Structures are given as C-alpha cells and as structure tokens.
Computed example of a mutant assay.
Amino acid sequence: MSDKPRVQRISTLVSQLMSRRGYAQMIAGEDFHATIGMAVGGQLGSAITVGKLKRGVLQIYAADSVSLQELNFQKRSILKQIQKDLPQSKVTDVRFRILTK
C-alpha cells in the first residue's frame, strides 16, 4: 500500500464540481428559455420559467392561466423548436404548469 495521492484528470474534477453545484442545469435552463422564447415570441417568452428535465420531459411553468393556455396551443411548435435547436438534450415531451409562489 503506497501513500501516493490519487491523481484525477482536471476534466473529471470540473465535471463533478458542475454537477454538485448545479451549474450545468442553470446553463441548460438558459438555453431552453432562449429557444422557447424564440418559438413563442417575446411577450409569452417572458411569462415562463423553465423547470427540470426528467426522463425526456421538460417542465415549463407559466405565470398565469392565460399564458398556460397559449403554451398548450403552441406545444407542438415548442417541442419541434427545442428538438431542432438542442438535440443533445433529448427532450421528448413538454409539460406546462402554473408557477405557484
């Protein structure tokens, strides 16, 4: 048994740090928000908050019920835009909910 310190690659350490601190999730959230904003337009885009991506389903929170209804009407175009702009995210569906405070 030697007392040598275990050497790790810097890329492994950075990856671990990003996952522990949630930085990757924040960056991905900003990318999703920008893509959805392009798909729905500026006014509706400012009324949403992007939630978690879990098993291919992206949660999107609307500020009010009117925005929620409009998002539901545009669901197909939003999903296509996300799949086109962010194919590495592997989003298969989007779900909309009202943001509760």
Rank of each mutant, 00 (worst) to 15 (best):
R6P: 09
V7D: 07
V7M: 04
Q8A: 09
Q8S: 15
Q8E: 12
Q8C: 02
R9Y: 08
I10K: 13
I10F: 12
I10L: 15
I10N: 06
S11W: 02
T12C: 01
L13G: 07
L13N: 05
V14C: 06
V14D: 05
V14R: 05
V14A: 10
S15V: 09
S15L: 11
L17Q: 11
L17T: 10
L17M: 10
M18W: 00
M18D: 01
M18Y: 03
S19K: 14
R21Q: 06
G22W: 07
Y23M: 03
Y23S: 02
A24Q: 13
A24P: 02
M26E: 14
M26D: 13
M26N: 08
I27N: 00
I27E: 05
I27L: 09
I27D: 01
A28L: 15
G29F: 06
E30S: 04
E30Q: 07
D31V: 08
A34F: 11
A34C: 04
I36R: 05
I36W: 02
I36T: 04
G37A: 12
M38D: 12
A39P: 01
V40S: 00
V40T: 05
V40H: 02
V40P: 00
V40G: 03
G41F: 01
G41M: 10
G41W: 06
L44S: 06
L44C: 03
L44H: 06
G45V: 03
G45C: 09
G45W: 06
S46N: 11
A47E: 12
A47M: 14
V50P: 03
V50R: 07
G51S: 07
G51V: 07
L53M: 05
L53H: 03
K54T: 14
K54D: 09
K54L: 06
K54N: 12
R55T: 04
R55M: 04
G56S: 06
V57H: 08
V57P: 03
V57D: 05
V57E: 12
V57S: 06
I60V: 15
I60M: 00
I60H: 01
Y61M: 10
Y61L: 14
A62N: 04
A62V: 05
A63L: 12
A63Q: 08
A63T: 08
D64C: 08
D64E: 02
S67D: 13
S67N: 14
L68I: 03
L68Q: 07
Q69H: 14
Q69M: 14
E70Q: 12
E70C: 04
L71D: 11
N72I: 11
N72V: 08
Q74P: 11
Q74F: 00
K75F: 02
K75C: 05
K75R: 15
S77M: 12
S77I: 15
I78R: 01
I78Q: 03
I78H: 00
L79I: 01
L79P: 01
K80D: 14
Q81P: 02
I82Q: 02
Q83K: 15
Q83V: 04
K84E: 11
K84Q: 13
D85E: 15
D85C: 12
L86Q: 10
L86P: 09
Q88Y: 10
S89I: 05
K90M: 15
K90D: 15
V91P: 06
T92P: 00
T92V: 14
D93S: 05
D93I: 07
D93F: 10
R95N: 13
R95E: 13
F96W: 09
F96T: 08
I98V: 15
I98P: 01
L99Q: 14
L99E: 09
L99G: 07
T100I: 11
